[in-house]
Design a protein around this nucleic acid. Structure first.
Ligand SMILES: NC(=O)c1ccc[n+]([C@@H]2O[C@H](COP(=O)([O-])OP(=O)(O)OC[C@H]3O[C@@H](n4cnc5c(N)ncnc54)[C@H](O)[C@@H]3O)[C@@H](O)[C@H]2O)c1
Ligand SMILES: NC(=O)c1ccc[n+]([C@@H]2O[C@H](COP(=O)([O-])OP(=O)(O)OC[C@H]3O[C@@H](n4cnc5c(N)ncnc54)[C@H](O)[C@@H]3O)[C@@H](O)[C@H]2O)c1
Lengths: 196, 196
DNA sequence: GATTTAATGTGAAACAATTCACAAAATATG
DNA sequence: CATATTTTGTGAATTGTTTCACATTAAATC
């Protein structure tokens, strides 16, 4: 968002503007900035340019992060094609699959076999992996990854991975996200609430 | 998880088992159950069968929820092929795209053009939509959907949608999920923490 | 330059979530 | 059947988060 504003030539932005664009309250925005010593001007708000550089270093976007993607099925392929990751400093250096058919280089992405893992993790100093393999393989793949030096995992499979305490796991459950909306809609189905 | 246990012939389960499998603490599990009047036995834990039926009605999985999916690009196609949604009571009744090429019925999924929206939303009483269109189209598509009666939106595009207060939106940002892991890993990169 | 206005920055209050601690119940054991 | 054990269920204490309220600052206006 700040990137867009800055590109549009906007030089300053207010906490309430940022709040509206990101779904927080102005207070939350200011508290968070304050926490990390990001300062604005008592009237003119925050400088987009300063914000951008502060956030870059805060979110460690200053250098690209090399990540790998394991499991090139439906979801894996979608993620591999997701361009916006690059813009966020997330660089998918290689993708892996156990299926030899998927490994056949089809135009866009080279898919490596699992026995190239070690080599590539080391070569690119990869610390974070995205796991998009079937539920049944997830724990196995995860353990391999940790053995090879991976310290962070984004897990799309609906299983709780067992990992040592120095490995951070983020479980992303798309079913849950959809289900929660259904739940809210069904629960809050109050009056007809006319929309004009 | 409970489904699996029950299928495996397990008849009772303890809060600490559920906790381990879902990433919460035993207390949290019990508190939540307690809140919704789901009772266990002071020694034998919870009956998987009873749990299953209680949760079905609590999460409204008792009836299938019809949802539609708009935007059959990389992500949309992955979601359309995601079988596990069915098992969770989430039924994608139709998928839509503006691109006529995508609308050509390719074996698996029929992709409708946007002018069939109204008809299908009405026919299947759809209240929830999944939005996987490019950022630039998201607000436009979202407004159309609301006009046609949609009351819940799962938004995969990285924009805050403006919606009336009776519409619930869940923003899912996969970049954020990955970025947060990178952030943790880079921050917590303490001692080498031997793994044996 | 005095006064009004619009924003930040941050304690304090209100609210929410999590953890602790333990009594109560059900089963198991001797 | 008495005692030990295991697990639930839930108040109370703790910790964390969000909102409120307002002093402070800087610019804009008159
Ligand atoms: N498709 C979706 O939209 C979606 C959404 C949310 C979550 N998920 C989850 O993501 C995971 C993958 O889903 P999918 O739809 O892409 O499944 P998929 O079956 O299409 O893809 C899985 C891929 O993993 C590969 N694989 C299997 N075992 C492997 C191993 N041991 N090592 C390396 N690769 C291996 C397979 O060859 C396949 O290409 C599943 O756990 C699923 O529950 C999928
Ligand atoms: N690819 C991913 O893995 C991924 C991950 C997270 C978020 N996203 C987000 O999801 C959205 C879609 O991503 P994608 O990679 O699938 O993009 P994509 O370009 O592959 O697909 C977008 C689809 O939407 C269709 N479309 C465009 N305008 C439309 C309109 N007005 N009405 C209906 N359909 C329309 C296009 O024809 C196209 O098929 C983007 O906002 C992206 O940021 C994608």
């Amino acid at each position: 968002m700040v990137v867009r504003l800055n590109a549009m030539g906007v030089t300053t932005v207010f906490s309430h503007t940022l709040a509206e664009g990101s779904g927080f309250t102005p207070e939350q925005v200011r508290k968070d900035f304050s926490e990390y010593k990001i300062r604005g001007h008592r009237r003119g708000g925050y400088s987009t340019e300063k914000l951008l550089s502060d956030m870059e270093s805060l979110f460690k976007r200053d250098r690209m992060s090399n990540v790998i993607l394991v499991g090139m099925g439906n979801l894996g392929q979608a993620l591999a094609r997701y361009q916006q990751l690059q813009q966020r400093g997330i660089n998918i250096v290689a993708t892996f699959d156990i299926d030899p058919y998927k490994q056949k280089s089809r135009t866009e992405y080279q898919v490596y076999s699992m026995d190239r893992l070690q080599e590539i993790v080391e070569r690119f100093s990869v610390l974070v992996a995205i796991v998009a393999v079937p539920d049944i393989s997830a724990q196995d793949v995860c353990s391999q990854l940790i053995d090879m030096g991976i310290r962070g995992i984004v897990n799309f499979s609906p299983v709780m991975l067992k990992v040592p305490e120095f490995v951070v796991v983020n479980n992303v459950s798309l079913s849950d996200e959809i289900e929660s909306v259904i739940w809210f809609v069904r629960s809050l189905k109050k009056g007809p609430t006319l929309y004009l």
